Amino acid sequence: MSRTMTGGCQCGRIRYTAQVENDEAYLCHCRMCQKATGGFAAAFVQLPSDSVTWEREPDWYASSPIARRPFCSQCGSPLGFDFIESSGQMDLTLGSFDEPGFFRPVAHAGCESLHESWLDTKDLPRHYSATTDSVASRWKAAGLEVPE
């Protein structure tokens, strides 16, 4: 089920095309991924390194002695994870794909730092940007529609 998918950073400076073989994604809860993304976990799609084509080479941060992370130095978007000593695989951040809804979570990694209370949030109130006045009014004042 090979599918060509695209993605990139928030400002659009870094773009990629990836040949995706399935809809599997995973969450990494390790402290390095938490710090690299600023979230409770990083959501990743793992694929063969040679299935990713960068339209413009991303910036790379050596996040540890064993790994590096692609990102955009202009807008700060984290774009993935890659072992320095190539394994033939790399990860792209789920949120950097143009269609992240295609993927489904299949596993947790780095569970030594997992924050259990953040996994089941279905009972929390849900607020939408377009109906949250503090957000929507600012977009309107800028003469723009609230983005998805």
Rank of each mutant, 00 (worst) to 15 (best):
G8Y: 00
S96G: 04
G38N: 08
G39K: 06
L47H: 05
W118S: 14
G95K: 01
P70M: 06
M32I: 13
W60F: 09
T121M: 12
A136S: 12
S63M: 03
A141K: 09
S64A: 06
R15W: 02
Q10S: 10
S49A: 15
H108W: 06
R138C: 08
L119Q: 13
T132M: 09
G101W: 06
E57T: 13
F83N: 11
R126Q: 13
A41Y: 06
H29E: 01
H127V: 13
H108P: 00
Q89G: 11
L79S: 03
L47S: 03
P147F: 05
D82N: 09
K140R: 09
E21R: 11
G7Q: 02
A42F: 01
S96N: 05
L124A: 13
L94A: 02
T37H: 08
R138M: 09
G38D: 11
A36K: 05
C30F: 02
E85V: 15
Q19P: 00
R56K: 11
Q19V: 15
G88R: 07
A41Q: 01
H115V: 15
P65S: 11
L79G: 04
T121V: 15
M32L: 13
S63Q: 05
P58S: 09
G39R: 10
G7E: 02
R68H: 14
C72R: 00
A67V: 08
P100F: 00
L94T: 06
R13G: 10
R104K: 14
A109V: 14
L144R: 12
L144V: 04
F81H: 07
E116K: 11
I14E: 00
D123S: 10
M1C: 08
H108E: 05
L47N: 02
R104A: 15
K140T: 14
K35W: 06
R31Q: 12
Q10K: 11
M32V: 11
V106I: 15
D98T: 08
V52L: 07
T37L: 06
R56Q: 12
D91L: 03
A141W: 04
A36F: 05
L119E: 02
N22C: 10
S2Q: 15
D133S: 14
E55V: 05
S73I: 00
P78N: 10
H127R: 12
Y128H: 13
P78M: 00
N22L: 04
Q19W: 04
P100I: 00
Y26I: 01
F40Y: 08
T93W: 02
Y26V: 02
D98P: 03
M32P: 01
E116H: 09
H108K: 12
G39A: 09
P105V: 14
S87P: 12
P78E: 03
G12A: 10
A18S: 07
G7I: 06
Q34A: 01
D23G: 13
A25P: 01
S134E: 10
W139Q: 05
F44Q: 02
C28N: 03
H127A: 09
P147M: 08
E55C: 09
V135C: 07
P70G: 10
L92S: 00
Q10M: 13
D59E: 10
S86P: 07
W139F: 13
T37R: 04
S134V: 10
F83E: 12
R3C: 05
C9G: 01
T131N: 12
T4K: 15
S134L: 06
D91A: 10
T93I: 03
P58T: 07
P58Y: 04
R69N: 08
